[in-house]
């Protein structure tokens, strides 16, 4: 057992990229400003000096082009990590992702797989207004043929990338931009993690709080405050939105009989809606209260700080939803 070091999600992710580059010469990083500038969120800072311009590649401002190039590189034997600056820009590459990356294996009759990893920043809360604050990971989770990862802990920022690179099919990693600065302890020997399972971050009996990505710290804080009110919540980090780990979700509901889903996406057609549906399908008779959710208000995200805060899931709104679901049965 080695010791733990204090680090941030950003540093953990950089360590993960470095490890992948060192372990496998087929791995390279490309995207807008990832080289000279060190990445829009400084994730790849210093990597250009370490690995050179062949493997840390700056690209033109054309998502469709460099995501398409990534798909071609993957089909031809490389293991590209494509960084898309933020999720809203990924829409410019949506055709590449949805029509090519996700379908080529199928369209080629299983002849060509696409071992591509696309990383992108997601989420609001940084006063970047309606065009740069989306949480569209739930949308992407709609698409068969890709995997959707949403790290919410330092361990997952450190460990998900390598496992994603090992996957024979395209994997999208949605990194909530607010988490890059999140500090925490990480084991010195931390390494790759499983990406197929949700994880119970906190065991409890009163209700299950399902959450992912940028909502994880808020949910954990809400759990602490709920505990002081005599409620014992379980917190489940979904980690992977596609494929959803339904078994862990249902197992938790079977123990707590109540559920609240925290999802930074808009509620209509959201991943929270999908989780609710699965809970109904597989554990209706276990439920002791209607399943509730905390989502982002269905508006273009406001720029003004207090307006943006009001629109996003907050610790207080999570607590309120949990209290409503528990009723007098805490």
């Amino acid at each position: 057992m080695s010791g733990a070091v204090k680090t941030t999600c950003r540093e953990a992710l950089r360590a993960a990229i470095r490890e992948a580059m060192q372990r496998d010469s087929r791995v390279f990083l490309m995207g807008e400003d990832v080289g000279e500038y060190g990445g829009c969120f400084a994730v790849s800072k210093g990597l250009l000096d370490e690995f050179g311009p062949e493997r840390i590649r700056d690209t033109p401002l054309s998502e469709s082009v460099f995501v398409g190039a990534g798909i071609g590189a993957a089909m031809n034997g490389l293991r590209p990590i494509v960084e898309v600056m933020t999720v809203n820009f990924s829409l410019l590459a949506l055709d590449q992702i949805l029509n090519n990356a996700a379908t080529i294996l199928h369209m080629s009759g299983g002849q060509f797989n696409v071992p591509l990893v696309i990383r992108m920043a997601t989420g609001g809360g940084r006063q970047l207004a309606a065009q740069h604050s989306h949480s569209l990971e739930g949308w992407y989770a709609h698409i068969p043929g890709i995997k959707v990862l949403t790290p919410g802990t330092i361990e997952d920022f450190r460990g998900m990338l390598w496992t994603a690179l090992e996957d024979p099919d395209p994997v999208l990693i949605f990194e909530n931009a607010l988490l890059y600065n999140l500090e925490g302890e990480l084991a010195e020997d931390a390494g790759p993690v499983d990406i197929s399972k949700a994880r119970v971050l906190r065991s409890g009996t009163s209700l299950s709080l399902f959450s992912y990505g940028g909502s994880i710290p808020k949910t954990l804080e809400a759990a602490v405050q709920l505990e002081s009110r005599g409620i014992d919540p379980e917190v489940v980090d979904l980690r992977t939105l596609r494929p959803l780990d339904t078994a862990t979700i249902i197992d938790s509901v079977r123990r707590t009989h109540r559920a609240v889903i925290v999802d930074e996406g808009w509620r209509s057609g959201s991943i929270s809606a999908e989780i609710m549906a699965r809970i109904m399908e597989e554990s209706f008779y276990e439920l002791d209260a209607p399943v509730a959710r905390v989502c982002t208000a269905e508006v273009p995200l406001p720029y003004a700080k207090q307006m943006e805060d009001a629109a996003l899931p907050r610790v207080e709104t999570i607590i309120e939803a949990a209290m409503n679901v528990v009723g007098g049965n805490g």
């Binding site: 009989h257 209706f284 008779y285 276990e286 439920l287 002791d288 209260a289 209607p290 409503n324 679901v325 009723g327 007098g328 049965n329």
Partner: peptide, 24 residues
């Protein structure tokens, strides 16, 4: 009545009309 409560009441032969609700 929550689905779970309904199931439990059925198993235990309890008349739900005699139960006071404390949930949402």
């Amino acid at each position: 009545v929550s689905p779970r409560a309904r199931l439990l009441a059925g198993e235990r032969g309890i008349d739900l009309a005699t139960v006071t609700g404390s949930g949402p």
